Computed example of a mutant assay.
Amino acid sequence: MTDTGADLQRIGVVGCGLMGAGITEVNARAGLDVVVVESSEGAAAAGRERLERSLQRAEDKGKLSESAADVLARISIVTDLDALADRQLVVEAIVEDEDAKVSLFKRLDTLVADPQAILASNTSSIPIMKLGVVTSRPTQVMGIHFFNPVPVLRLVELVPSLLTSPETTERARSYVEGPLGKSAIDCQDRAGFVVNALLIPFVLSAIRMFESGFASAEDIDRGLVLGAAHPQGPLALADLIGLDTVKAVAESLYEEFKEPLYAAPPLLARMVDAGLLGRKSGRGFYRY
């Protein structure tokens, strides 16, 4: 009998950057066994430090039902993809690059032993179909898109491709809404899914306004916070997302729809080229 999503206990995560660490944390906090794969020992050490800091903050604020050490004990961070062989669900959270993701899914297909295992991507914009068709199990491949910061934001987008089985989607829903305690929405396999297809053009519009000299970054953001009750302004949000990610999602949207509102402004491209990526690099539209 096929397991339900609530029975998924052995979770794999590929990548322990900002998103990968958040996905790892919510799974471990839900009592699940998590193996995380990073590309190098240095990246693995940085990922562990990121997790330790986040969990310690949660413990200090009384948001954990157990100690940070107990949660960390359910997490293994390694550099060998072979460690994912026994996983029931693997979530890919690497760089937003189609070639890199396609190559990874080819590897995962050969490594993950359970034929019923779900191979999921946390991509913000890359079509799930392109990842599913390079495997021998496209019915088991889908998007499970978390939002940053993962431990805080409750939304998860579920994105089946045309080939994903209904059973896979329902297992994913059971997993997301069961042990993880999050809320899922259903999305078609189109670039940007629901949230980013609406959000990214809005952010790009704010960047164009700033780029043109129409208003300062501070005034643009204050206008949306104080005048539209947004929790933070669009430029501060872009810094939080990461300007490289904003650019990558915009390019995927433009590639799919060819609509001018999805085109990345020149300023965004120059900032990414300069390494001004927002919070994660210490400087974007603001300094951190």
Rank of each mutant, 00 (worst) to 15 (best):
D82Q: 12
P166F: 11
A269H: 02
F193E: 11
S76W: 01
F202E: 08
S125C: 02
A269P: 03
A30Y: 08
V91P: 01
V13Q: 11
R10C: 07
T123V: 08
T4R: 14
K61W: 02
E157L: 14
E41C: 00
I128D: 05
K258T: 11
M209T: 15
E170H: 10
R29Q: 07
R279H: 09
F193C: 12
I128S: 07
S65L: 08
S174D: 04
P201Q: 03
A215K: 12
A120P: 04
A269L: 13
L277N: 06
A43D: 05
T123G: 07
D239N: 00
V246C: 06
A269Q: 13
I200R: 06
T4G: 15
H145R: 15
V249R: 05
L199N: 03
I77W: 05
R270L: 00
Y286C: 01
T164P: 11
R29L: 02
E167D: 14
G47I: 08
V225Y: 06
L104R: 10
A21W: 02
F202N: 09
D114A: 15
I23H: 12
G181A: 03
E92S: 13
L162H: 05
V35C: 14
D239F: 00
R208P: 03
S40L: 01
A68L: 05
A269E: 07
S205L: 09
R222I: 11
A191L: 10
V90H: 09
C187E: 12
L240D: 02
A44W: 02
V91S: 08
V78R: 15
L199W: 09
P149Q: 12
L104W: 03
S65W: 05
L199F: 05
S124E: 03
G223E: 01
E170T: 12
R10V: 09
S183P: 00
L198M: 13
A215S: 14
R222G: 07
L119T: 15
D3N: 11
G223F: 09
D82R: 12
A43W: 01
S103N: 03
T168Y: 00
Q116K: 14
R154K: 15
T79A: 04
D7R: 14
A263K: 11
S124C: 03
E255V: 00
E157W: 12
V34N: 09
A236Y: 03
P115N: 10
G143E: 13
G22P: 06
G17L: 07
V159D: 09
I200G: 02
G12D: 13
I75F: 08
F202Y: 15
I126L: 13
G282V: 07
R279D: 01
A117L: 04
A184M: 04
D189I: 09
A46F: 00
E157H: 15
V36D: 08
A206N: 05
A117P: 12
A217L: 04
P138S: 12
I207N: 03
S183G: 00
A215L: 06
R279Q: 04
A21G: 12
V141F: 04
V152R: 15
Q56P: 03
A120K: 04
I200A: 02
L224H: 07
E52G: 11
